Amino acid sequence: MTAVQHVEPDFSTRLLESSEMLSYDPMTEIDWDSPLPDHQYGLNPEWSTLYGTSLWDGLTEQQRITLTRHEVGSIMSTGIWFEMILQQMLLRDQYAKNPANPEFQFALTEIADECRHSIMFARICQKLEIPAYFPHKAVVEAARLFKSTAGGEVAYGGTLVAEEVLDVMQRDWMRGENVLDIVRTSSKIHVVEESRHMKFAREEIKEHLQGKNLLQRHASAWLIGLISYAIISSLVNPRVYKAVGIRPRDGLAAAQANEHRKSMLRNACAPLMDFLDDAGLLTAPAVNLYKQVHML
């Protein structure tokens, strides 16, 4: 990612100062040895992909709890996958740049944050005894090209999508009284630290768009939409439904037709869509992609 423009030093300096004042160590903030209460969900039931469907109605309370634990494990696994992509893109973007620049230093700070977040998510999945849920193989392989070649507003746009959507979900999880304490605490950590990352990504997108012509903007808009489609459709792996005796294809069909789920996603994506619209990145082809995964 070769940047022609740069985020203003004062802005990056403020982000660095915020990182110094308000950052967490998940290894000490989370009580890893505490037992998992049987009655606590993995995420708010309302965020389950099956909530509001006949399949959900047919589950016992314990099955619902099990399903949400597998769903949050899948979301965290997907988060790890994309955070690894993000770290590589940030390193490429800052390669051989002035280390005295606050932008350079915050980029490395963000990489350190993402490393801690990935380890935190990995340990939660381990404690929940959740299998590794990865996106579809085709998405994983396509992402190898993306992480090696994406630059500018496309790279930061994809980053912003992943961060914004998870941020809205986790703001609910951290307040969920019936949600596992380890999920609530990890959500609080992620929300606080990712708020700086989102501000950084938004500024980078605006800077990289300066001087771009209409064709370039349309191409970037479509690519960001394509990345968004891949991320949102990969959040919950259909294999999670096997944990409660539902065939993956049946669970996936119910989730895709779930009007409650569609409404939750649209509400979660509203601030992101407003930003993309203001930035001129909400073109007709991009809108079509967002609508397919109910982001609009």
Rank of each mutant, 00 (worst) to 15 (best):
V7R: 15
L16Q: 12
L22I: 15
Y24E: 14
E29Y: 07
W32C: 10
S34Y: 08
Y41E: 05
N44D: 11
P45K: 00
E46I: 13
W47M: 03
S48Q: 03
S48R: 01
T53R: 15
R64M: 09
T66N: 13
T68H: 00
H70R: 13
G73I: 07
G73W: 01
M76C: 11
S77Q: 12
W81I: 07
F82A: 09
D93G: 13
D93R: 14
Y95H: 14
A96W: 09
K97I: 02
K97F: 01
N98E: 11
A100I: 06
A100R: 15
F104P: 13
Q105Y: 04
F106G: 09
A107R: 11
L108E: 07
A112W: 00
C115I: 13
I119Q: 14
E129H: 14
A132M: 11
Y133T: 04
P135L: 05
K137A: 07
K137N: 13
A138R: 12
V139M: 03
E141L: 14
A150F: 00
E153H: 04
V154C: 02
A155L: 08
L160P: 10
V165S: 06
V165C: 08
V165N: 05
D167F: 05
V168A: 11
R171L: 02
M174H: 08
M174W: 04
V179A: 01
V179N: 02
L180G: 09
L180V: 10
R184S: 06
T185A: 06
I189F: 00
E194C: 00
S195H: 08
S195R: 04
K199L: 08
H208N: 15
H208Y: 10
H208A: 15
L209D: 12
L215G: 08
L215C: 10
A221C: 03
I224R: 09
I227V: 13
Y229K: 15
Y229M: 13
I232K: 01
S234V: 01
V244W: 08
G245R: 01
D250V: 07
L252C: 01
A254I: 01
E259D: 14
H260I: 05
S263H: 09
L265N: 01
A268S: 13
C269T: 08
C269N: 13
A270I: 02
L272S: 02
M273Q: 14
F275C: 09
F275S: 08
G280V: 03
L281M: 05
L281G: 05
T283A: 06
A284M: 12
L289E: 11
H294A: 11
H294K: 11
